[in-house]
Design a protein around this nucleic acid. Structure first.
Lengths: 217, 217
DNA sequence: CGCCATTTCAAACGATTGTTTTAAACAGGT
DNA sequence: ACCTGTTTAAAACAATCGTTTGAAATGGCG
């Protein structure tokens, strides 16, 4: 089949540019509000190209979510920096900081966060695989870290609650940004601010974790 | 004008039923995906009724947000229960619990939470007034409470960060429910579970607050 | 009853959407 | 150069949306 040859040489242009354009448009307007005419114009392609290459709008969206996942993972790998010489406290701070950076990055890296925010409010069928392939590994990595901090065999329930307490504080600033910017005008998300944010969340959470450790349930 | 008479006697039916139907439909499908035909069918009214009574879809949505605000406030008043005999610690637990209950209530009371979730992902012009009229008062009430817990003149920045740490943990369970139910199947939101959740969030946060108090910045 | 403002209704309008169609342009193998 | 399968292009299609229209129905009031 000539398919293989074409795929590695010339198929890039329209198909790839369609992905790039769709990523930006879907992230900005959401699946429903985005129009394929808008996407195709941005990609310099014909409206029929989406149906030809992706089997319709839904197919394109699914592929975009995978691509966004790939881009975010490439930019801020979650598993690395597991320098075993670090204290778990320091490691938590690195985790929180990386999480925030990933959420407030720009360009392709930010697509995933925006797309996921929209998935929360009206999930598509793609969410299942994203949770399984991306979120679950991260969740277990964080749980492992929290167990080291909690010590002495904490219950599954307790670990989960603490995990969500940590994660929620990170996600909040991304998800509730419209309210934050209206409630606290001037609240910025610069690199320095993100570092301060990470420091607060870490210290706040470490105290909560020590408290949970004492309760030993 | 006969307007006054009619408004108090017979205008209720269609206009009110339109509000009720629209609240349910907007909460479930969002502003964009909801159709006025769907709303009107549910209300037993003609499609033109929306334009007659509310000046279009956008007008209806704005009115629905106000109505949802009213319903939620009526069901779980936020300002009450300020029994001055309570310790601030206990008061925080009550605040958190009420917040959670409000988010996980059902029927009209739950509309506001769902509508606000969607406002976070694509804000409309109504968000400004909602923040000003509803969120800001609640925010200042919580900040007042946190100041009592933090003691010794904490910085504005510090109070804000702690406030968001508390609020974020409550909102997370509502906003990220699609992920939670996929990541932790069986995680329930029954009355008893909500009480446990509130207890965890409160204890976790109180520890964080004590830690923040010591840092005295 | 007959008048009048208010409200309801069926029908149609105009715009936009995702998708399909049909033919043309293209590239590679023999 | 010719044929073949792949890709692109313009145009049209069918469905759906919010909104408008103009007439019918309603109900209080002189």
């Amino acid at each position: 089949m000539a398919q293989d040859k074409v795929k590695s040489t010339l198929e890039e242009p329209t198909r790839q540019q369609l992905l790039e354009a769709a990523g930006a448009v879907f992230a900005e307007h959401g699946f429903r509000a985005a129009t394929i005419r808008q996407i195709c114009q941005r990609a310099g392609a014909n409206v029929a190209a989406v149906n030809y290459h992706f089997d319709g709008k839904a197919g394109l969206y699914a592929e975009v979510l995978r691509y966004a996942h790939h881009c975010a993972e490439e930019r801020h790998p979650t598993g690395v920096a597991l320098d075993k010489s670090l204290t778990p406290e320091r490691e938590l701070e690195l985790f929180v900081h990386a999480f925030l950076q990933r959420l407030f990055d720009e360009g392709r890296t930010a697509w995933l966060g925006k797309l996921m925010s929209r998935e929360m409010v009206e999930p598509t069928t793609v969410l299942d695989s994203v949770v399984e392939e991306q979120i679950k590994p991260n969740s277990q990595r964080l749980q492992h870290l929290l167990r080291r901090l909690l010590g002495a065999r904490p219950s599954v329930e307790r670990v989960r609650l603490c995990e969500m307490s940590v994660v929620s504080q990170c996600l909040f600033y991304h998800h509730c940004r419209p309210v934050i910017s209206r409630l606290f005008p001037g609240f910025d998300f610069s690199t320095a601010a993100l570092r301060r944010l990470a420091a607060h969340i870490t210290q706040f959470s470490l105290a909560g974790l020590r408290r949970a450790k004492k309760e030993r349930v």
